[in-house]
Nucleic acid binder design. Structure first.
Lengths: 222, 222
DNA sequence: TTATCTGACTGATGTAAATCAGTTTCCCGA
DNA sequence: TCGGGAAACTGATTTACATCAGTCAGATAA
């Protein structure tokens, strides 16, 4: 039986009694693809650690509109801000593939962070990447037009962070459009255009980046 | 002579030797209104603590376009992410009023955080508000149209966080537009419209919120 | 097999808001 | 107090996208 304290790198240097502390206040569970881990506005009672799988984190913006913020993978914490006085989830999260999650009690986690500053730093460091990602999203949405936005989304989703996994097969065109923050129809039209220009290859849901340099140029120029 | 360790609440519970540590690695200095504290892309070597004054934090998005993210006031840290492996500034910051700043050496700050987990938690907690603010900005930019965006910006800039200070007198129409992420001309037209509808009062640069409830309604409905 | 449904796709249309091209007002220095 | 320069402001014009209104292809069920 796997367990999260062993598997994930950030727990590696904890002392036995610290691991013990966490073990007592946690549950491991599996979400099936399509199931919601949490919804924006709901009370947040635990910190989640993704053990395995892919999770789409998004912002619900109006009844049937959503903006995708981030793709979380093994080793990422979710709902981390609930440790700092946030009682309600500020985003929603849904599993894209079957996903193993470790739910850790808020108070246990707080105790642990307070007792082990080095551990806290390591975690915080990792979480700060989110902030960077948020800034990127903001940047994209404002100064770029559709082509640049889509290029940016494609680059993010094909980045090394995801260790060669093909992300695209798990995403609908709508998901992709919501990462780029353009209308679904627009995304589709532009994908075709990129294909015509030999920048990407389309095959069903799969998308292969052929000319990354060109895509980066489009991203830069907006 | 003021000094930052005394003045700011988050330092209050530090031990004398910890204050000593910070004192050795810091400089206090003043920026005049209009001067840049740092620019996006430049190397970030210190953490900044705002002692007094008002600082506009913004994202440079293209040659002559910028998006305002946040207004920092006394007690706020800036460039905090440089503690976590970020070597360059991800945003720019400019003083809106004459501003006292305390520059703290990165390594000294790291040492301090590592040595005092409670302090670290308190700071991190405060910094997490930024993330919330970023999410708000993102939310505004996507699902709202101009009226909603402007309403949102007006509400933020007149919020209690700024303790009754009139922020607007320090902001040009362009600044305001960049907070709302609309064109300057559009912002101006809408301000007039809000004035006509009795929601706000305009007098030179000054803006007074008359009907906050209505503004909140506009914000919600987009 | 046929029927049904959902997501992918396409072209035509509408529109919100940026841009442009001014005029007016304010402010500060000479 | 005059003059010049930058904001503030306004109306007309343009445009990048979203929206609409479909068709088509593949998957699932009946």
């Amino acid at each position: 039986m796997d367990n999260c304290e062993r598997m994930v790198a950030c727990f590696r240097d904890l002392k036995p009694e610290e691991l013990e502390l966490i073990s007592n206040g946690k549950t491991e569970l599996t979400y099936l693809a399509g199931e919601n881990l949490f919804k924006q506005g709901a009370f947040s009672t635990h910190v989640l650690l993704v053990m395995d799988g892919l999770v789409k984190v998004y912002l619900q913006t109006g009844r049937d509109k959503q903006l995708n913020l981030q793709l979380a993978k093994s080793g990422d914490f979710l709902a981390f801000s609930s440790l700092f006085g946030e009682t309600v989830h500020t985003t929603s999260a849904v599993a894209l593939t079957d996903t193993q999650v470790c739910m850790i009690d808020k108070e246990k986690m707080r105790t642990l962070l307070l007792g082990n500053a080095e551990f806290a730093m390591r975690i915080t460091s990792r979480n700060y990447r989110n902030e960077r990602q948020l800034l990127t999203v903001i940047g994209n949405m404002t100064y770029k037009q559709m082509r640049g936005k889509l290029a940016s989304a494609l680059l993010y989703l094909s980045s090394d962070d995801f260790l060669g996994q093909d992300i695209f097969v798990h995403l609908s065109r709508q998901d992709l459009a919501n990462f780029a923050s353009v209308a679904t129809e627009s995304a589709i039209k532009l994908l075709k255009e990129f294909e015509r220009d030999g920048i990407i290859a389309l095959e069903g849901k799969g998308i292969t980046i052929i000319n990354r340099a060109e895509l980066e140029k489009i991203e830069r120029l907006g």
